[in-house]
Amino acid sequence: MAGDVDVPGPEPDWETAPEYQGGKHNPAFQQSAWEFAASSFHIVAGLQPPLDVLAARLRLSVERTWEDLGYVNVAMFRIKRTDFALSEFEGGHSPYTAVWVSRSSDNVEAALDILLGALGIGREALAFHGTTETGFEYRNGWTGG
């Protein structure tokens, strides 16, 4: 019977699961769903419009989650068999909306064109684009800082 098992509370010296655990007292280290999903994506661009405007255009739901740098708002979706994510840190940590594409996508430029077409905007909306492998090209006077 499921109600017959008492589960003890946490040990007094355990850190909370999502925190850095220098002492490694807690046997669990929690990741957010975004941190887990982000490992399947890579950042390919930054868009100047804010996430809420981009999400409204595609009627996407935005989820609030967290990662080591703080709270982040994320929308994950698929267009023409290409998986995308748009993310934006809360509190103005970054002046752009990050564009992520699935690591399984062979042609990042084509994927970016698909996204921009669906959003109804052109490349002038980019703050930067590229990959960590090829380097990033900055546009419109944005320098990455």
Results as ranks from 00 to 15, higher is better:
41 F>D: 00
123 R>C: 10
129 H>N: 14
79 I>M: 01
69 L>A: 11
92 G>M: 06
41 F>I: 01
27 P>G: 02
50 P>T: 07
39 S>H: 11
51 L>H: 02
47 L>G: 06
96 Y>R: 01
13 D>L: 10
20 Y>W: 12
3 G>Q: 13
106 D>S: 15
35 E>A: 13
128 F>W: 10
120 G>L: 08
40 S>I: 00
96 Y>M: 08
67 E>H: 15
11 E>G: 09
49 P>C: 13
103 R>Y: 06
41 F>E: 01
68 D>Q: 14
24 K>I: 04
71 Y>Q: 13
21 Q>V: 06
102 S>G: 15
7 V>K: 12
92 G>A: 11
91 G>R: 01
17 A>D: 03
136 F>M: 09
74 V>E: 06
20 Y>R: 15
94 S>T: 14
113 D>K: 14
42 H>P: 01
103 R>Q: 11
133 E>W: 10
64 R>V: 12
122 G>C: 12
130 G>L: 11
48 Q>D: 14
105 S>Y: 04
77 F>T: 01
135 G>T: 12
55 A>F: 05
104 S>P: 01
38 A>Q: 13
111 A>R: 00
144 G>H: 08
69 L>M: 10
81 R>W: 03
141 G>K: 03
133 E>Q: 14
124 E>T: 13
124 E>D: 15
72 V>A: 06
31 Q>P: 00
80 K>W: 02
130 G>D: 09
89 F>A: 07
